[in-house]
Deep mutational scan, measured.
Amino acid sequence: KWTITVQGEEAIKWAIKVAEARNLDYTVHIDGDQAHITIE
């Protein structure tokens, strides 16, 4: 299990796209213009 933090709307969209493309189980916690994405 690991967490990445991305900043900015484009980076958030990209990170989610990558997680979905790899069929990963993930949760997103949005904090202002940052998102913390935890991959199970």
Rank of each mutant, 00 (worst) to 15 (best):
I30G: 03
E9Q: 11
Q34T: 14
V28K: 01
D25G: 10
Y26D: 00
E9T: 11
A21E: 15
K17H: 12
I37R: 00
I37F: 14
A35D: 01
T27I: 11
A19S: 04
T27W: 11
V6Q: 01
G32H: 05
A21M: 13
E10W: 11
I39R: 00
I4W: 12
D25V: 15
Q34K: 14
A35L: 06
A15I: 14
I30K: 07
T3V: 13
E9L: 13
W2F: 11
L24P: 04
E20L: 06
A19T: 05
A15N: 02
I16N: 01
D25L: 14
D33P: 06
K1R: 12
A21P: 00
W14I: 06
Y26N: 00
L24T: 03
D25K: 15
I37N: 00
A11V: 04
I39S: 02
A11M: 11
L24Y: 13
E40D: 11
Q7S: 12
D31H: 10
I4V: 09
A11S: 06
A11F: 08
I39N: 00
A11E: 07
Q7F: 13
H36E: 07
G8H: 03
L24S: 05
Y26M: 03
I4S: 00
H36G: 02
T3I: 12
I37K: 00
T5S: 08
T38S: 06
K13S: 08
D25I: 15
R22S: 15
A19E: 03
D33L: 08
G32E: 03
G8F: 05
T5P: 01
I39F: 14
V6M: 05
V28I: 14
D31W: 09
Q7N: 09
I37V: 06
I4C: 08
I37Q: 00
A21D: 15
E10H: 09
V18S: 07
E20S: 05
W2M: 05
I39D: 00
V6F: 06
T27H: 09
I37P: 00
E9W: 14
E10L: 11
Q7E: 08
K17F: 11
I12D: 00
W2T: 04
V18E: 14
A35G: 05
I16V: 08
A15D: 01
K1T: 12
R22V: 14
V18Y: 15
E9I: 13
D31Q: 10
E10I: 10
D33Y: 06
V28Y: 04
T5F: 09
T38E: 06
T38H: 09
H36P: 01
A35V: 11
R22N: 15
A15L: 12
V6W: 02
I39A: 02
N23L: 07
I12P: 01
H36L: 12
I37T: 00
A35T: 07
D25Y: 13
A19R: 00
A19N: 01
I37W: 01
N23G: 15
A19Q: 02
I16D: 01
H36R: 11
G8L: 05
D31A: 08
K13E: 10
D31S: 09
K1E: 05
Y26S: 01
W14D: 06
W14C: 10
Q7L: 11
L24K: 04
T3F: 08
Q34N: 09
H29M: 13
I16Y: 02
T27Y: 09
N23Y: 07
N23H: 12
V6T: 02
A15W: 15
Y26V: 05
A19F: 14
L24N: 03
D25A: 14
V18F: 15
Q7P: 02
Q7M: 13
H29P: 00
W14T: 06
D31K: 08
I39E: 00
Y26H: 02
I16H: 01
G8E: 02
T5M: 08
K13L: 12
K17D: 10
N23D: 10
D25M: 14
L24C: 14
E20W: 04
E9Y: 11
I30M: 12
I39T: 02
I4R: 00
V28R: 00
E10P: 05
D33T: 10
E9M: 12
A19K: 02
Q34V: 15
T38Y: 08
E10S: 08
D25P: 14
E10D: 10
A35W: 12
I16T: 04
T3A: 04
L24Q: 06
R22H: 15
A35Y: 13
T5Y: 10
D31N: 09
K17P: 01
V28N: 01
W2E: 02
Q34Y: 15
W2D: 01
I16R: 02
E10Q: 10
I4G: 01
L24E: 05
V28Q: 01
I39H: 02
V28M: 09
H29D: 09
I30R: 11
H29R: 14
G32F: 05
V28H: 02
D25W: 13
G8Q: 02
T38C: 04
T38M: 07
W14L: 09
V6I: 09
E20D: 09
I12F: 07
N23R: 09
A35I: 11
I30D: 02
H36M: 12
L24A: 07
R22A: 15
I12L: 13
A21V: 07
N23V: 03
H29L: 12
W2Y: 11
I4M: 06
I39G: 02
V18P: 00
D25F: 13
A15S: 03
K17S: 14
T27C: 09
V18I: 13
T27V: 11
T27Q: 07
A19L: 15
A11Q: 11
W2I: 07
G32I: 03
T5N: 04
I12K: 04
D33Q: 09
K17W: 12
